[in-house]
Measured scan of single mutants.
Amino acid sequence: NTKMVRFKKGDSVGLRLAGGNDVGIFVAGIQEGTSAEQEGLQEGDQILKVNTQDFRGLVREDAVLYLLEIPKGEMVTILAQSRADVYRDILACGR
C-alpha cells in the first residue's frame, strides 16, 4: 500500500510532520490547496523517502529542515505508505 506522489514545490511543501526516530515520519496535517493535497497525501501517511533522502530513522527536525531546503519550483517526489493505525498510536503516546 505504498504510493508515490510527485509535484513542483510551491512556497512550501504543505505538510505538517509528526513522529521521528524509531517510529518514522508521518503526515500530521496537509495545507489545503497544496500540490501535496491534490496528489493524494493524507494525514497518517508515513513518509518513507523524499527525492533521494530516506526518511526512515530521521528525527522530525531533520525531516522538516530537508523539506524546507528544497528550493521553490523544484520537483518533489515522495514515497509514502498509509499507516493510519500506527499514526493513531503515535498520537496517543504524544509523540
Rank of each mutant, 00 (worst) to 15 (best):
A80Q: 05
I70K: 07
V50W: 00
G94C: 06
T2V: 06
V59E: 15
E69V: 07
G19L: 03
N21I: 12
T2S: 06
E69P: 05
V59C: 15
R60S: 09
R16D: 13
D89R: 12
E61F: 02
A36S: 07
V76P: 02
K72S: 03
E32K: 15
G20P: 01
T52V: 04
M75L: 09
Q42Y: 02
N1T: 08
T77G: 02
G29F: 01
D45C: 02
I25H: 01
R16Y: 11
I78A: 07
D11N: 10
A84S: 13
G44V: 03
S82A: 11
V23M: 08
L79R: 08
L65N: 15
E74I: 03
Q46S: 07
N51P: 02
L79M: 11
I78T: 01
L48Q: 01
V23Q: 09
R56I: 04
Q46W: 02
L65G: 14
Q53L: 09
G44H: 02
P71F: 00
G20C: 06
I78M: 08
D54P: 05
V5M: 01
Q31F: 00
I47D: 00
G10W: 00
N21H: 14
I25E: 05
F7E: 00
G20V: 02
S35P: 14
I90W: 15
G57F: 05
V59G: 15
I78C: 05
G10F: 03
D85Y: 07
E61D: 12
I47P: 02
Q46K: 07
A18F: 12
E37G: 10
L17D: 00
G19A: 05
V76Y: 06
Q42N: 05
E39R: 08
G29A: 12
R16H: 11
Q46N: 05
I78N: 11
T52Y: 05
S12G: 11
V59Y: 11
R83T: 08
D22Q: 10
L58Y: 06
K3V: 02
M4C: 12
L67P: 01
G33Y: 06
R6C: 12
T77A: 04
Y66M: 01
V59A: 15
Q46A: 01
V64E: 15
G44S: 01
I30F: 13
E32F: 05
Q53A: 03
R60N: 09
V50H: 01
D62V: 07
N1E: 04
A18E: 14
L58S: 03
T52L: 04
G57N: 13
A28H: 05
D62C: 01
A63W: 04
G14L: 03
Q81I: 10
L48F: 03
Q31R: 10
F7W: 03
G40I: 11
G14C: 04
E39V: 14
V27L: 04
G19R: 04
D62T: 09
F55E: 09
V50N: 05
S82I: 00
V59N: 15
L68M: 14
K3D: 06
E43K: 08
I30P: 06
R6K: 13
G20A: 06
G40N: 09
V13M: 13
E61G: 04
V23A: 09
G40P: 11
K8R: 15
Y87T: 11
Q31D: 15
E37I: 10
L67A: 04
L67S: 04
E69G: 14
L65P: 06
A63C: 09
F55R: 05
K3Y: 10
D85T: 11
A80E: 06
R88G: 10
R60V: 15
V59Q: 15
D62E: 15
G44T: 01
G10M: 04
S35A: 15
L41Y: 00
L58C: 06
L91P: 12
V76M: 02
G40M: 05
A28D: 13
T77M: 07
R60W: 13
Q38I: 13
R95C: 15
G44P: 06
D85W: 03
K49V: 08
K49E: 11
G57M: 08
Y66G: 05
Q42S: 11
Q42T: 09
A92G: 14
S12L: 07
G44A: 01
A36W: 14
D89L: 05
V59M: 15
V76N: 01
V64C: 11
L15G: 02
V50E: 00
V27M: 09
F7Q: 07
A92F: 14
G44D: 05
D85V: 08
D85R: 09
D85G: 09
G40T: 10
G29K: 11
Q38L: 15
K3N: 00
Q31P: 10
Q42F: 06
